[in-house]
Design a protein around this nucleic acid. Structure first.
Length: 419
DNA sequence: TCTGGGGTCCTATGCCTT
DNA sequence: TCTGAAGGCATAGGACCC
């Protein structure tokens, strides 16, 4: 059996742990750059604030109903997450950390356990030790555990936050209840397509022909169907496979049309990727650079483009990666466009200790020592103390984070003060 | 004025090699 | 030496997740 643990309104719950005044009040946490609502308390949901609501459009509602608004504080959420996960791992050896607020547990050899009450005690322990409320869905497959979790969350009084699907009868009942667009793995596109042919629930979906699903939704869709039928095909992924790409992308505060200004951003994004590479002892051998205009301003000329730049050797040097990124930008930049967003993604990752050398062209060996020194100084003196000439030395821009809470558990000078 | 960021997997396509 | 089939690989795009 699988269990899916999901933290309720996770980011909001993290803020509430250290600020109990927020309990029973509408609270939202905004995305990076304070753009959209990405976590809402039940009270905020009741006010009709949808997931992804753009903050500027809902400002009036926020003021009118006294909604508490926060910038996202990923340092705090990440730390709270690892506390929750470490408690979960005490209850079974088989755990997959699926995201910052979700984990799958596998119960093998638990035949004599009453899983419902076992999971109740997990839930109580997590709340007692961290203050984070969670919901748990238990079922024979991962996709059904997702369904089960949804029921636990939707009917807290009836389920007390834990729900178990352990018979065909319960499975069918759940699938008839679950709307097709709410099925894990069915996104917006597939949901639209399916609803057009009168597939409105998860139960309608499993009644489709295997062949049709395979043809129209690839093996991914077919696997999902098997899972919902109760045949487990997705196993726990306990070992986190190494990353295949590292991205740094940002929307700008306004729009930018000047090449030099975008070049500076791209260079900084590339260096940020290089730093992330070094922090996990990796190299890359290619970098993807993209720019795009504002898709919401329909009356303006729309342009989006990206380019993959191959680096002839494997590297994590700020200088090299930034150079190729700027070269890529030169090739895709078009004059007269108001750019809104840009980014760099490094790919072809491998270990920096053990990488393939090129017969003809290799990195200047002195870069390695230079980067080591830069990292050392940044660590000691703070980030962005050292810059390449292609970066803006005055750094006029940074992410908008106007309503940031303290990092109560991870910065010593922001630790909570009890009087 | 103001609409996130960071990932994954699958498939189709075209080119190259065996 | 030529040819077609089949497989490997890179790339781009689509779809999904949190």
């Amino acid at each position: 059996m699988f269990a899916l643990i999901d933290c309720n309104n996770f980011y909001v719950s993290c803020e509430r742990v250290f600020n109990p005044k927020l309990n029973n009040r509408p609270v939202v946490v905004l995305s990076n750059n304070d753009g959209c609502a990405i976590s809402r308390s039940n009270e905020a949901k009741a006010l009709g604030i949808p997931m992804g609501a753009p903050a500027f459009k809902y400002e009036k509602i926020f003021t009118k109903h006294n909604v508490e608004v926060f910038s996202s504080n990923f340092t705090l959420y990440g730390d709270m997450s690892s506390r929750v996960m470490s408690i979960l791992s005490k209850y079974t050896p088989n755990i997959e950390i699926y995201s910052i607020d979700e984990a799958f547990l596998k119960f093998e050899g638990f035949e004599n356990y009453d899983l419902e009450s076992y999971c109740q005690s997990i839930k109580n322990m997590v709340f007692k030790w961290t203050g984070i409320p969670i919901s748990i869905g238990i079922a024979p497959t991962k996709a059904l555990a997702k369904v089960s979790n949804r029921i636990a969350k939707k009917f807290p009084e009836k389920t007390k936050g834990v729900y178990l699907i352990n018979s065909d009868e319960k499975r069918i009942k759940a699938l008839k209840w679950l709307k097709i667009e709410d099925v894990w793995g069915i996104g917006f596109r597939h949901a639209e397509r399916l609803k057009n042919i009168k597939i409105n629930t998860a139960h309608n979906f499993i009644n489709l022909e295997d062949n049709w699903v395979r043809r129209n939704m690839s093996v991914v869709g077919l696997r999902l169907k098997k899972e919902l039928e109760g045949k487990s095909v997705l196993d726990l992924e306990e070992i986190r496979s190494p990353k295949k790409a590292i991205a740094t992308t940002r929307s700008f505060e306004g729009t930018i049309n000047d090449f030099e200004e975008i070049k500076e951003r791209i260079s900084t994004f590339a260096i940020c990727c290089a730093e992330k590479l070094r922090s996990q002892n990796s190299n890359c051998n290619s970098i993807y650079v993209f720019v795009r205009s504002n898709k919401f301003q329909k009356n303006k000329i729309q342009y989006r483009n990206g380019i993959m730049m191959t680096i002839p050797f494997s590297t994590n040097s700020n200088i090299i990666i930034s150079k190729y990124a700027v070269e890529g930008l030169k090739r895709i930049f078009r004059k007269g466009i108001d750019y809104k967003k840009a980014g760099t993604i490094v790919m072809g990752l491998d270990s920096s200790e053990n990488h393939q050398l090129n017969l003809f062209e290799n990195e200047n060996p002195r870069h390695k020592y230079l980067m080591k020194t830069i990292d050392f100084i940044q660590k000691k003196e703070g980030q962005s103390k050292i810059k390449l000439a292609s970066q803006d030395l005055r750094k006029r821009w940074k992410m908008k984070q106007e309503k940031l809470s303290h990092s109560y558990t991870c910065k010593i000078n922001e630790i909570i003060n009890v009087k």
